[in-house]
Nucleic acid binder design. Structure first.
Length: 713
DNA sequence: AGCGCTCAGCTTTTT
DNA sequence: GCTGAGCGCT
């Protein structure tokens, strides 16, 4: 039996609500996840719905994994029930549906998922073909096409708010781009959502099947849904048995089409709905909440909601003025040593050489900094206080910033103090060359029409096939696909005899495709690791990577690590395992890659931090142009999103919150004088304590902003 | 085809 | 200050 007594009145009301539409407006730290998991457990326990009929949509894979575990713990009397829930992100659930049904839309079941890099490559080729010049770069089209898809507009339906000349151009590129995706049997991220909606609209029978399958739908982070996701919920949720949770004050994905009006209009869409507000905060101290509250009040259009807490005031929030980004990092590092230092006076002189996720050992990073500052190792190590070996856990510290680019200066200070850290996002394991190459081989094994992958590995390792050969082969694949879709690779390869290449290149290409065919004729009972090993052997990847250099050795180790990851799919036949594996890798979110075990502080962007909490948070770079970001200053609605972003950042902290701004900062290779963020000025002075003159932000400074005295560098 | 050199342009945020 | 495109040389 789940114990409702551990819930407060509002939470209980939500958990035990009727089966009609329910909107839970949940402030940060108000027990949103708890409410959601209890709700799922409750409807199962009361037999209001079968576990297999529940669809729970979350924002990240990590969140869904956690939720499944928590539901499982609550349902001790229903063993296995949690496994039967359908849970995942919108993207992964759509991918699963499409994997079954996409034949009806003219794609093959073996479709691959293109990430933004892949997308960019196609768009680049199209822009070059159309000779669009520098004023119309691929990035522009990728943003606009994404916007169109999020609004559910196919190329033929495209109607973005643009002048007619531009609209024509975008349409032209969009048509070609989408044709390419179809020819390559590939879907981009936005297609996963859009095509699922299009499928449901075109095929009532399919829609009905899923409507009957998922009779109860729960959505986390509802404020971040876009039109496609909204439409999907309207279609699937005809039964109106919906339970959505969100906080309009934490809507931070407007840039990728999320529409805050989805949550604001919930009552209009579902007039019979129940609305429950969770306003008691269990996470943060009163000081932290008071500061966050004042910040969010900068936005007038927020749904009124007042957080309160029984927690005590706690420490005041520390506002720090640093001279520059280097001093900013040093402050953070010093403070961490002070707070987590444990026994003092036992400096560690050996830099930690364990790998960090950025792929560079701490020692490498040290050498880099040494090159930069010309410091000797002794001087370098002495430069900052060191973290003793018996330090407290570092898992409860996090450093937040607006953009990835800000991490560098912080990292350097952390290395100098010997503080282990992990970065979420930025360079990913799956972005490394040797890993990406292997993924491309695997993608080709699944779907040889994937030209983005083909281009990448056609000459990897070198076999004399360059740009020219690629183009000839590409045209051949496109033509053969136009004539007849779904030609198996065996037949494709016999037709390949007609390809117009010089003898040497023809033979080389022939043997490349022979290898692909070999992978395809691997017995079905083989496993994914076996397929990977075969690829390694057939393309002599081990010999190529292990060239005797240290770097080569580490690349090979990365490939071995990929093999380890693939072990997870050993119990499946390779074709299924391959599909699952590629899909999972493609839809991995930044935060999914965070290592929970590792005793290290976490560095990440504000966006990645949503939904997380830490005892101590360092919030850095609180300057005009960074937060709010300079690109957000034109549109008031973008500025409001920056304020919400700040709100998200502040409310991650449980006990200690440090806010840092720098007087000057290096960007684009030149030093810029910085102005403290307007967001800081909104904070209640009496909740703050100041370091090195930070109080100046409250000094009288006239109407529009803060006067900063000129400084010399 | 592949290497190395020079110079421009650049940074939001993510599935 | 870093990356990646473009060019010229081998």
């Amino acid at each position: 039996m789940i114990n409702l007594e551990t819930l407060n009145d509002r939470q209980k009301q939500a958990v035990t609500a009727g089966m009609g539409p329910v909107l839970v407006l949940a402030g940060p730290g108000s027990g949103k996840t708890k409410t959601l998991t209890y709700r799922i457990a409750y409807v199962i326990e009361k037999k209001l719905v079968h576990p297999g009929q529940i669809l729970a949509l979350t924002f990240t894979n990590k969140a869904s994994k956690e939720m499944r575990e928590r539901v499982n713990k609550l349902l001790t009397k229903f063993p296995g029930a949690a496994e039967r829930l359908t849970m995942g992100t919108f993207h992964s659930v759509c991918a699963r549906i499409l994997r079954k049904e996409i034949g009806r839309l003219g794609y093959g079941q073996d479709f691959v998922i293109f990430d933004s890099d892949d997308q960019q490559k196609i768009l680049k080729e199209i822009c070059e073909e159309l000779r669009l010049g520098k004023s119309l770069p691929p990035q522009l089209f990728s943003a606009l096409i994404s916007r169109a898809k999020n609004l559910l507009q196919l190329p033929s339906e495209m109607n973005l708010d643009l002048d007619s000349r531009m609209k024509e151009k975008v349409r032209e590129v969009y048509v070609r781009y989408q044709d390419q995706l179809v020819a390559q049997n590939a879907l981009d991220f936005d297609d996963l959502l859009m095509l699922t909606v299009k499928l449901f609209e075109a095929e009532p029978a399919v829609l009905e099947k899923y409507q009957q399958l998922y009779t109860y739908i729960l959505v986390d982070e509802y404020q971040d849904t876009n039109l496609a996701q909204y439409q999907l919920l309207r279609l699937l949720g005809v039964h109106r048995r919906l339970f959505v949770v969100g906080d309009d004050a934490q809507s931070i994905y407007g840039f990728r089409g999320s529409d805050i009006t989805n949550i604001l209009n919930f009552e209009k869409d579902f007039p019979e709905c129940e609305i429950i507000k969770l306003e008691q905060n269990y996470r943060s101290t009163r000081n932290i909440l008071a500061v966050a509250q004042k910040v969010i009040e900068l936005n007038s259009e927020q749904k009124p909601k007042t957080l309160w807490t029984e927690n005590h005031d706690g420490e005041k929030i520390t506002l720090v003025q640093a001279d520059d980004e280097k001093a900013e990092g040093e402050f953070v590092a010093r403070k961490i040593v002070e707070l987590a230092g444990g026994k003092k006076d036992e400096p560690v002189y050996e830099p930690d050489t364990s790998q960090n996720p950025a792929g560079m050992s701490i020692l490498d990073r040290f050498l880099l900094a040494k090159k930069k500052y010309g410091a000797s190792m002794a001087g370098f190590i002495r430069a900052l206080p060191q973290l003793p070996k018996d330090h407290d856990s570092l898992k409860e510290f996090c450093i937040l910033y607006r953009t990835h680019a800000q991490s560098r200066s912080i990292e350097e200070a952390l290395i100098q103090s010997g503080i282990p850290y992990q970065i979420v996002g930025g360079y990913k394991f799956y972005d490394r060359k040797e890993i990406k190459d292997m993924l491309c081989f695997l993608r080709l094994a699944q779907n040889y029409r994937d030209l983005v992958s083909l281009k990448r590995v056609l000459n990897e390792p070198p076999r004399g096939l360059g740009e020219k050969s690629y183009q000839v082969i590409r045209d051949f694949i496109l033509e053969s696909g136009a004539k007849e879709k779904d030609v198996p690779i065996r037949e494709f390869r016999s037709a390949f005899a007609e390809v117009k290449l010089s003898t040497k290149q023809w033979q080389s290409a022939q043997s490349f495709f022979e290898a692909l065919e070999e992978f395809n004729s691997l017995p079905k009972s083989a496993t994914l690791p076996e397929l990977i090993s075969l690829i390694i052997r057939r393309f002599r990847l081990e010999q190529t990577l292990r060239d005797g250099s240290e770097k080569g050795e580490s690349r090979w180790e990365n490939l071995e690590e990929l093999l380890t990851v693939a072990q997870k799919f050993k119990n499946l036949n390779w074709p299924e395992a391959l599909t699952e594996f590629l899909q999972e890798v493609a839809l991995l979110s930044e935060i999914d890659q965070k290592n929970e075990e590792k005793d290290a502080i976490t560095l990440m962007t504000l966006h990645s931090a949503k939904g997380l909490e830490f005892d101590t948070v360092f919030f850095v770079g609180l300057e005009e142009g960074i937060l709010p970001h300079s690109r957000s200053l034109v549109e008031p609605k973008d500025l409001a999103e920056e304020v919400r972003l700040a709100y998200v950042g502040l409310t991650r902290a449980r006990k200690n919150l440090f806010l840092v701004f720098a007087r000057s900062r290096m960007s684009y290779g030149t030093r810029h004088i910085q102005t403290p963020s307007r967001i800081l000025k909104a904070m209640p002075q009496e909740r703050l304590t100041f370091v090195s003159g930070a109080e100046r932000i409250f000094e009288d400074s006239g109407e529009d902003g803060i006067v900063v005295e000129k400084m010399e560098f």
